[in-house]
């Protein structure tokens, strides 16, 4: 009996020691996982692709992906700004098991599709004024519009005719920017002309200046003006090499810019933080109105010219 008790005790001690070995290995495995965590798969669906306009955004996203261990898939509709194609791409990526989604919607329909379908994966809709969780970092549309209108008001203190071109009438974020511009200018006695991609050329000569609420349309407009050798002041939104050149040669009188690199970084950071259940550090990226005179000011340089590291 005594011997049996002794055997049980020995067995108990051995079991306890064996378990403690396993426990210590388990603790190490938890604290310092030997294998790298599963990479997050995040899909980014652009509404169009323009290296100059979206290049910095992409670099920022890639930097965040590197910091958070994510793998990015960049997708663009074959037809620029095609809402239908974007909707298909959203479905396709969700079905393919993407962990997160960043979308720059071509229209409100795409945004509506995402919000109504209540995606179970985290997503960020850029160029929109959604809630904090889904809007990523795109400056408030009303603020952008207001800054543009203020710049125009300063340049035309006695009022003038403004042409507001909306290249994406169905994009709610962009429409809001123009609404804000229109409101401000109207209050200050400006005449407002509105146009879309089909009729802006007809109204161009009637305008004293043009308001362009997004980057690609500004690039196209500069190219058009150069080709037509027209000198109509432009007020643009967003960073691109062409925007900088436009500012420098005076084609663009003022531009509301923010750092595309930072915008891209924050979009991925927001999704990765939600997937990893961490709290991202609070950031308040700067949004500035730049004119030719102050584009080489230190603070403007930092936002306007990518340092490239």
């Amino acid at each position: 009996m005594k011997r049996k008790l002794g055997n049980f005790m020995q067995l108990g001690i051995l079991t306890a020691l064996g378990l403690s070995v396993l426990l210590s290995i388990f603790i190490q495995e938890i604290s310092w996982p030997s294998t790298s965590w599963e990479r997050l798969e995040i899909s980014i669906i652009f509404r169009e692709w323009n290296t100059s306009a979206w290049g910095e955004l992409r670099f920022g996203m890639e930097k965040a992906a590197s910091d958070y261990g994510a793998e990015l898939r960049f997708l663009t509709p074959q037809e620029s700004n095609s809402a239908a194609e974007q909707q298909k791409l959203v479905e396709q990526e969700v079905n393919n098991g993407a962990d997160g989604l960043v979308i720059i919607p071509a229209s409100g329909d795409v945004q509506q599709q995402i919000t109504e379908n209540k995606l179970t994966i985290p997503y960020v809709i850029m160029e929109s004024d959604g809630d904090e969780k889904t809007s990523g970092f795109t400056p408030d549309s009303e603020t952008i519009g207001q800054l543009l209108a203020q710049a125009a008001t300063e340049d035309f203190p006695n009022g003038a005719t403004a042409l507001l071109i909306n290249p994406l009438p169905e994009n709610t974020g962009i429409q809001k920017r123009l609404d804000s511009v229109q409101k401000y200018l109207s209050e200050n006695g400006f005449s407002i002309l509105t146009a879309d991609t089909d009729n802006w050329a007809r109204l161009l000569l009637d305008a004293d200046f043009v308001i362009l609420p997004e980057t690609t349309s500004a690039i196209q407009m500069m190219a058009f003006l150069e080709e037509q050798q027209l000198d109509i002041p432009l007020y643009a939104v967003g960073y691109s090499q062409e925007t900088v050149n436009g500012l420098e040669d005076g084609t663009i009188r003022a531009a509301v810019v923010w750092n595309g690199y930072g915008e891209g970084y924050l979009a991925i950071q927001q999704i990765a933080s939600r997937l990893l259940k961490t709290t991202p550090p609070e950031s308040e990226p700067a949004v500035i109105l730049v004119r030719k005179e102050d584009m080489y000011e230190p603070e403007s340089q930092k936002i306007l010219f990518p340092i490239g590291n």
Partner: peptide, 16 residues
Amino acid sequence: IYHPDQQLIYAGISQN
């Protein structure tokens, strides 16, 4: 002069 996150710092992110 140099920082690995210089671009982010210039963009107003990672100031810390």
